[in-house]
Design a protein around this nucleic acid. Sequence first.
DNA 1: CTGAAAGCGCTTACAG
DNA 2: CTGAAAGCGCTTACAG
Lengths: 341, 341
Amino acid sequence: MAEKKPSINDIAKHLKVAKSTVSFIINGKAEAHRISKEQEQRVLNYVKEIGFKPNYMAQSLATGKSNSIGLIVENIGDSFFGPIALMIEEQAKKSGYRIIYSSTLGDTEAALSVLQLFRDTKVDGFIIAPPLHMEEEIKKVMDDGVPIVIFDRMLDNVATDYIGTNNRAMVVEACEHFLEQGFKEIAFISLASSQSQMQERLDGYINCMRTHNRLPIVLEVPYSEQRDQRKQRMIDFLQDNPQVDALFFATNYLCISGLEAIREIGKKIPDEIGIIVFDEHDLFRLFTPSITSIIQPLAHLSKAIIDTLLNRINGIPADPSGLHQVFPSKLVIRESSINKK
Amino acid sequence: MAEKKPSINDIAKHLKVAKSTVSFIINGKAEAHRISKEQEQRVLNYVKEIGFKPNYMAQSLATGKSNSIGLIVENIGDSFFGPIALMIEEQAKKSGYRIIYSSTLGDTEAALSVLQLFRDTKVDGFIIAPPLHMEEEIKKVMDDGVPIVIFDRMLDNVATDYIGTNNRAMVVEACEHFLEQGFKEIAFISLASSQSQMQERLDGYINCMRTHNRLPIVLEVPYSEQRDQRKQRMIDFLQDNPQVDALFFATNYLCISGLEAIREIGKKIPDEIGIIVFDEHDLFRLFTPSITSIIQPLAHLSKAIIDTLLNRINGIPADPSGLHQVFPSKLVIRESSINKK
DNA sequence: CTGAAAGCGCTTACAG
DNA sequence: CTGAAAGCGCTTACAG
């Protein structure tokens, strides 16, 4: 059973040297403190021999660093945040950081309480895909000197590092593609949310419609709606708007509900209705017909997120020319948006 | 900028009481230490007034508890572990625990190193879906008194709590269903892995085949193979075994590759080939034709996992009658396994 | 009923 | 070149 782990103190006593000497040697500061090679070897050997591991809690208490990062996303179980969480952790591990995560499910209260919880545990930095209305609290955390990187959606009036994609331009590209393929009445189906990425996508849509002198048709779905309700809402929408011949979904799970709705009312894709969706999902590649989608560069985004945060933690300031790093997505054209006669 | 946070010491000085008194009151032990209501109120008021938050690191160092749990899964980004991670964290949060996670991607070395890392950070317990050959290290951790719950696959010769599903019985049920529907030559496509859940599934298949006097046909795919190679391997397999008229996939992403392969060689589901898959995915419900799958009770599993671990952390021992908790899955019959003429 | 003190296991000026 | 000591912010016997 749980025998007591050796401490630096035990080592010092055993070797009859000072604790500080041991500490310096373990932390590779032997040279800086001009400790003899001989002494250093003795300690190092003994450390290896007994398999000494420093106690991180004590280290953290003494240094004020915890080597952990708080990751707050919307839903770690979904096909956007899940893979990002995977890649972020892979990178973080290499630099000796652990990741503590929490999912907000879009709930601001939940996000704030977990932000506080993570702060109390002295994480060295945060990676957050914030729900609405976190500006103030996030600002406070930054004012306390804790680095934060925001991703996927950005914040109003708070100067944080932000990593995201070119939402607006991609939607314009997608809508132009619809039009080129002969689709005329394009509806935009989105979340009822004023989050920046959703607004940018909407904005791209509205602008493209305006350019082509068309009236926008927008359906906004509440975030927390259940799958069945969501499907029903889309069925109603399609029936109320029979002229609509193309659908742009602002995010992937909306599209999944949309595909269920379309199947239920028996419309043919793409002949009766074209489909494009923001964000990828295994389903879209394999659906019959395959679904055109806008794919975010997850690997680049993840790398930028973790690199940026580690830089800030290590005191490397942001390039003043821009806190915002935008990585372009790719429109992958598949069957669902092709060739409307 | 980061003004110094008040400590218990500051409070004690300000109020001219002993640190211990403050500590007791904050931890709700005022009564036990017979501190006057009056005193208690004074301290509580002041604590609220200045917004005092105890330093978790210090608390952890003093108590040896960190209020954090290490979650080690295969891939937090996939459609099985992701949702489980979500639910586990939701539950853990309610009890004041944070979750530190890491993905092994099936690599034992990676798993061992992260196990060590998490141990050094003094997590209060572990939740692990272990890759192969972790028995020994896991045993060591348990011997040190750190509770561990294993899920999805179990360990040989190590008595741990284990949460899983009835793999064997479900596969038998699925194969019987295939046979009832007139499929004759059922192949089993699995991972080349001796993990228990895969073995149980294979075992169910072999047994069912034996019962019906059929020869098993098994394809085993290496875990780390890329998607394209996997698809090619399945194409080869189907072409080498033209008599096969039904495929049982031992896990969901194998099935995804299988569907790509089948599409590529143009076989018709279910008329030319029937499909059943272990584990669910959005794709299976919406694929044309929809794919019959075995759905694990994720919510029950997650709840059992976290409840069991918290019990062990709180010193409530396992029911000696069984460390293994098995929650039955459900065979959801869809179009892909129906009515072979 | 309350307080002084030791201890958790590190780090880091400081003195020599 | 090395050591004694204070400090990080808590908890918890122990004494009175």
